[in-house]
């Protein structure tokens, strides 16, 4: 296999929450469709499909994406077929690597019910709580609005899925306080970070183009700081990500304290195989294995 040839001589494997992964790369939720899975075999250490919700969601009316310098703003609105159909189709995401499932609800009870539903399935290795998607409003706020909100929803999910690893996905705003709250409520790991709330305007038409979340290389320094701050504060592992576009970016996130690194928007413009190959070159040069890199800033 092409991927394997390009990563020989380095140990890419990492372990998190008792799960062994062949590489530290994970697709960011909502950036890898099942139709595109065939091309990334061997690249990702786990697969993480688009967020699922209790019922089907049609999503937002177009336009949903707008390009910005070094990134894009999206407002998809969590379009998905709902958890039951998602679970029926789960085998489509089987690449022989652990499967993480991202969930989002509109109420704490929704979240808990989703955790119970997906965690009872043996094919699901871990559940990521999408607490920070800025597209979905809850009384004008997200579940990531503050430590109290985070603690409430994570506590409920912990009770609903007592044995399955739970990751809380956080936005960069107030991330340290929210990270502490998620950890104390029983989260096994933290995903840092989600897209940054953003707006694009069509000056010619004098109208809002897309109000949504910014992703891509533009957000990388913000994400790196968030990961660094969180990793120094909590004991649970961190899945870092935000604008990861190269193998060096992967290394930077791990040095900042991430155990796993999520690749999202960049996979639309680069073959993620290249990112993994570059990361392997970095490790080879450094004489290190991937697992040694986490938090290894001098």
């Amino acid at each position: 296999m092409v991927v394997r040839e390009r990563v020989t001589g380095v140990d890419l494997s990492v372990e998190m929450c008792g799960i062994t992964l062949s590489t530290p790369l994970v697709p960011a939720s909502g950036t890898l469709a099942k139709e595109a899975l065939g091309e990334v075999e061997g690249v990702y250490g786990a697969i993480l499909p688009k967020t699922t919700t209790p019922a089907a969601r049609a999503g937002n009316p177009p336009p949903r994406v707008a390009e910005t310098p070094a990134g894009m703003v999206n407002s998809i609105g969590l379009q998905n077929p709902g958890v039951e159909r998602f679970m029926e189709d789960l085998d489509a995401f089987d690449l022989g690597v652990p499967l993480f499932v991202s969930v989002a609800g509109e109420t704490v009870r929704d979240f808990a019910a989703l955790c119970e539903r997906v965690s009872e399935d043996g094919r699901v290795a871990a559940v990521e709580l999408n607490l920070s998607c800025p597209n979905v409003e809850h009384g004008g706020l997200t579940f990531c609005a503050g430590p109290a909100a985070v603690e409430e929803v994570v506590t409920a999910c912990r009770a609903a899925a007592p044995t399955k690893p739970l990751f809380a996905k956080l936005t960069h705003e107030g991330v340290v306080g929210n990270a502490r709250a998620a950890e104390s409520a029983g989260a096994d790991a933290l995903t840092v970070m989600n897209t940054i709330p953003a707006l694009t305007i069509d000056a010619k038409r004098r109208s809002v183009l897309v109000r949504g979340g910014l992703s891509g290389p533009a957000v990388k320094p913000v994400a790196l700081k968030a990961v660094h701050d969180v990793a120094r504060t909590v004991r649970v592992p961190v899945l870092g990500g935000g604008g990861v576009t190269s193998g060096t970016d992967v290394a930077e996130f791990m040095l900042a304290g991430a155990t796993l690194v999520q690749v999202g928007t960049a996979s639309f413009v680069r073959d993620p195989v290249e990112i993994l190959a570059e990361f392997s070159d970095y490790l080879r040069e450094a004489g290190m294995g991937a697992a040694e890199l986490t938090g290894a800033l001098r």
């Binding site: 890898l32 469709a33 099942k34 139709e35 688009k50 949903r64 998809i76 996979s267 639309f268």
Partner: peptide, 9 residues
């Protein structure tokens, strides 16, 4: 956005 079905844009 992506062209391969991933972003739903």
């Amino acid at each position: 956005g992506c062209g391969n079905g991933s972003c739903n844009g």
